[in-house]
Design a protein around this nucleic acid. Sequence first.
DNA 1: GATATTCAGTTACTTTTAGTAAGTTAGTTT
DNA 2: AAACTAACTTACTAAAAGTAACTGAATATC
Lengths: 111, 111
Amino acid sequence: MKELCPRFEKAMELFSKRWVGLILFELLDGSKRFSEMESELPISGRLLSERLKMLEQEEIIERNIYSEFPVRIEYKLTDKGKALEPVIKEIQSWSENWVTHEEVEVDKEKE
Amino acid sequence: MKELCPRFEKAMELFSKRWVGLILFELLDGSKRFSEMESELPISGRLLSERLKMLEQEEIIERNIYSEFPVRIEYKLTDKGKALEPVIKEIQSWSENWVTHEEVEVDKEKE
DNA sequence: GATATTCAGTTACTTTTAGTAAGTTAGTTT
DNA sequence: AAACTAACTTACTAAAAGTAACTGAATATC
């Protein structure tokens, strides 16, 4: 196997984990709590928890606890995470230009 | 659940399938055949076949058969596929700026 | 003309990851 | 002390990925 750039491979591995892109998109406009993301995305609590833990470990997001009642825990992008904004924006722009209405409809039928 | 843009969701779903990013990266510098991609990427024939079929269906790549001996089948990006170049480039640039040598090493140890 | 070679896949099977739903914990509030 | 809330976990099932051996078509070689 040819050596691809290992950093690039690592980045792709991260991005190709389901929900990561949408979670980052959610956090682009500021910090969010667990329950907000859970209700705004079609992801289950189990996986959301797993992904947030992983993204925190990769230092892409940051977890902050506020000891109020009820406890408030907020997630937000670090600088490393914010640096992914151009990636998200490019995907967004591609999808607007190239993903057709029809394709989206076909996918809906499968559900 | 809030409605995200369905086109964006669709694009993310595509991109978050394992190996899609690396396959597209491979095809950025021209057409490739099955065996080339198989040897240049750490992906098995089974999945490569599955992904190529899927990308062809999405009209992101194009499959061409040349009846020589032995048969030559080449895959290349369509315009829709080429339009993904900025996405790949942004991921590449992010990985160069933010993925550390250490992170890559830690991942290697897991193997 | 039987045997071997090459590319491009398939098939059958195991392991890992994702999805679902119910349960847990800590700190209130009533 | 019973009930509520946010943020998770746990236990279980289903889907996707990984592995390795096999197939098929078109030559080429003996």
